[in-house]
Design a protein around this nucleic acid. Structure first.
Lengths: 109, 109
DNA sequence: CTCCGCTATTCAGTGTTACTATCTACCAGT
DNA sequence: ACTGGTAGATAGTAACACTGAATAGCGGAG
């Protein structure tokens, strides 16, 4: 996927995952699969699980254990109020950065 | 500036600085001042200098020592061919991420 | 002349984050 | 019993931005 993308994901991947959860509850394996589908080709499994543990500890998501037909029980995450608030801040920061970069890209030639 | 922005800068600040240098040569202090001016309110001095050392080591920039009227001599950085190539890759990665996020923001409501 | 403020750079130590690699665990089909 | 797909956890590593402090040169106030 390239080192550039990898480094860029630091700080944004969290927002990406929270944005997914804002749409609908989901579990780790599902999220990983979705990300790969979207072109984040080599997101490591462990990365998503670690991230989910982090956001859970910070109280941004609620967790429900749901038995699955295949394999061990799923941990289904859903965004709570605090998470939604945090996601809002994320979008604000993103817009800010996005605007500055757009400006630079145009000015740069 | 908020933790969100800080974390988001990982991997993008480098691109921002290279994009600045694509426009014109500049030295550390100047870049820091410009960033602060643009709203990156509390970019630490040390951060920019460390970043410049990194990109210099990777051979993305050329350096010239220029005596200044005030204070110690300036290290003026300018983007070289390798740096321009790297910056292109950065824009590619940025566009990719930007599109995914834009998609998520719209889909999320 | 000395001290302070501004310009300009450097560096050691810290915290957060994503990756690698590996492990456990459950189920279905062969 | 064995393999493959689903699902999650974890220890160790590398990269990066921040903190805080140090160094150094110059000009002006006292």
């Amino acid at each position: 996927m390239g080192k550039q993308t990898t480094e860029m994901l630091k700080g944004t991947l969290e927002g990406v995952v929270l944005a997914i959860l804002a749409g609908r509850p989901a579990y780790g394996y599902e999220i990983t699969a979705w990300l790969r589908d979207q072109g984040f080709s080599d997101i490591a499994e462990g990365t998503v699980y670690a991230l989910l543990v982090r956001v859970e500890k910070r109280g941004l998501v609620d967790v429900a254990k749901v038995p699955s037909e295949k394999g061990p029980p799923r941990k289904v995450y859903s965004l709570n109020d605090q998470g939604r608030e945090y996601l809002e801040e994320f979008w604000t920061a993103w817009r800010f950065l996005s605007e500055r970069l757009e400006q630079l890209r145009e000015g740069g030639r």
